[in-house]
């Protein structure tokens, strides 16, 4: 979260220039969804610098690039959005923005019910991780003690020399912290390091790292899925 509101235009500019590190940029993208002022600052910054891209000498592009794009397109799948109750919906834009969280909420219900009804300890937060296409790939339950659980809800293509690593961003100052590696592709219990109590909106993500985990202690590989924590009610 941004600690000082007056820093918003400065942080938005640094984000648009690509100067934030991986964790900071991911956190900003997540914050932006719930912070209109931050979103407006990013929008203004993008449009301010856009002429530097518009004035470029165009490249010669042939049709084979389009053919490759066309070949990888999937038909649009409309997320099943619950209809807003009539009369209460004066914020259609906001509603659409929460489409992803709506899917996420459904999954929290389905997955959450399945295993939370059968046990006594409640996680402090639950994060539903979605990939770039908005597909749900995994759910993390963080118990806040020394333990977190990840449930894989999809298959991942993990080469032999790679491993999936689980991360969270307890705070911008702390930066991303590893919660552990997943041995193979399966649901797992993670012995997490001692961290501040997870909070609502905290970022969780899984990345593909070299076997043995990221050599730098920070995420270096591609993000497979990410999501923001919610407090179970």
């Amino acid at each position: 979260m941004i600690s000082d509101r007056k820093d918003i235009p400065a942080i938005a500019d640094e984000y648009v220039l690509g100067l934030l590190d991986h964790g900071e940029a991911a956190q900003l993208e997540a914050d932006m969804e719930e912070d209109k002022e931050l979103m407006a600052a990013v929008a203004a910054s993008r449009d301010r610098f856009l002429p530097l891209d518009m004035s470029i000498e165009p490249a010669a592009v042939n049709d084979s690039l389009w053919s490759r794009i066309e070949a990888s397109l999937q038909p649009q799948v409309k997320p099943a959005q619950p209809s807003p109750p009539p009369g209460l919906n004066d914020n259609r834009a906001g509603w659409r923005l929460t489409a992803i969280s709506a899917i996420a909420a459904t999954v929290i219900l389905a997955v959450g019910l399945a295993f939370s009804l059968m046990r006594t300890t409640e996680p402090v937060v639950v994060a539903v991780l979605v990939d770039e296409a908005g597909e749900v790939r995994a759910v993390i339950e963080d118990f806040g003690s020394q333990q977190a659980v990840i449930k894989m809800l999809a298959d991942f293509d993990v080469p032999d020399d790679k491993t999936i690593q689980v991360w969270t961003l307890p705070s911008r100052d702390m930066g991303p912290v590893s919660l552990g590696l997943i041995d193979g592709i399966r649901s797992a219990r993670l012995d997490r390091p001692s961290l501040p109590l997870p909070r609502n909106g905290q970022l969780y993500e899984i990345t593909l790292e070299q076997a043995g985990g990221s050599p730098t202690g920070r995420p270096t590989g591609p993000i497979l899925a990410k999501g923001l924590a919610k407090l179970p009610r």
């Binding site: 407006a40 929008a43 203004a44 856009l50 999937q74 659409r96 923005l97 489409a99 770039e132």
Partner: peptide, 12 residues
């Protein structure tokens, strides 16, 4: 895949 997320409040 993300066209549905575009809104004018996200800039041009």
């Amino acid at each position: 895949t993300h066209a549905h997320q575009y809104q004018p409040d996200r800039g041009s």
